[in-house]
Computed example of a mutant assay.
Amino acid sequence: MDTPPRVPGLGTFLDKNTGTPKPPTPQLVTVASRLLLLAAVVQVVASVIAVVYAASPARLDAIQLQIDAMTGSTPSLAMMRNLGILTVVISGIATITAYVLFALFLAKGRSWARVAAGVLALLTVMQLLGITLPEGLTTVAQIVLGAVAVGLCYLPGPNHFFATVKAARS
């Protein structure tokens, strides 16, 4: 019988030692994971608002002004509108997937998930440029939820949990 191929880094996602008991997940880590899932729900709302705006007459007027200012070969209004909607949908799906993935692995005790969630929260801060209210409240909510979730993971109890899970996997 052949042994399965060794994939470098796969242990980050899979448990190597299934016989080693995993310590119970602290309540603060569970709360942090749920906060990230709530941030994913907020991203769904933000994406719906962005798609509605991208298809609105006001946005079409702004796109037409940009097209009128172009020289040479110009794209069509419909193509530019559809490209904007597609960009919003794809970036929304990617962000929602990231929040859910990080929340699930955070609950499993993966240290990389809390670092990645922190990076995602920092990237969300960049969305504050050009923010308009009340639509921008979703961005502010995501920043707060992400920051609180990451902050909870670095408290002494959760920090010990992540270290214990890492030691148990080795």
Rank of each mutant, 00 (worst) to 15 (best):
T3S: 14
V125F: 10
A54R: 10
L38Y: 04
G72M: 05
S111M: 12
P8E: 04
L123T: 09
A116Y: 04
Q66F: 08
F105D: 03
L86D: 13
L83H: 02
V45N: 02
V119G: 10
L77V: 04
Y99E: 09
T25S: 05
A94D: 11
L10C: 07
D68N: 14
A32K: 01
V51Q: 10
R81K: 14
F102Q: 08
L65V: 05
A39R: 01
A62C: 01
P5I: 13
G109F: 01
G84L: 11
G19L: 10
A117C: 00
R34N: 15
P23H: 09
K108H: 02
V89A: 13
S76G: 15
A98L: 12
P4Q: 11
S111I: 13
I67Y: 08
L65W: 02
V7K: 06
P75A: 12
R59A: 10
A116C: 11
R59E: 15
T3I: 06
V52E: 01
V7Q: 03
R6V: 14
A32W: 01
S56R: 05
R81F: 05
V52P: 00
S47M: 11
P26C: 05
L106A: 09
V48A: 13
I49W: 05
A113D: 09
A117L: 01
L122M: 15
V100Q: 01
K108R: 15
T97C: 04
Q43G: 08
P4S: 09
L28H: 02
I90R: 09
P21Q: 05
V115Q: 07
G19N: 13
M70I: 01
D68M: 08
N17P: 02
S91R: 10
R114G: 04
L101V: 15
V125P: 00
Y53M: 03
D2Y: 03
G9N: 04
I93P: 00
R34H: 15
V31Q: 07
A98G: 08
G72D: 05
A69Q: 14
A46F: 09
T71K: 09
K16A: 08
L35H: 07
A32R: 03
L122S: 13
P8R: 05
A46P: 01
L36V: 08
N82A: 09
V89W: 09
V115N: 04
I67R: 10
K108V: 00
D61W: 11
L104Y: 11
D2K: 03
I93L: 15
M79Q: 12
S73K: 08
M79P: 00
T97D: 00
I63R: 03
G92V: 04
A116E: 09
A121Y: 05
F105M: 05
V41F: 12
V48T: 12
V42L: 08
S56W: 04
G9M: 04
S111G: 15
R59Y: 10
L37G: 07
T25F: 00
V51M: 09
F13A: 14
V119N: 01
A113E: 13
I96D: 12
T95V: 09
A69T: 04
W112C: 03
G11H: 06
T20P: 00
I49H: 02
R81C: 03
L106H: 11
T97P: 00
S56G: 08
D61Q: 14
R110L: 02
V31T: 14
L104R: 15
D15K: 14
T87V: 05
A46E: 06
G19H: 11
S111T: 15
P75N: 07
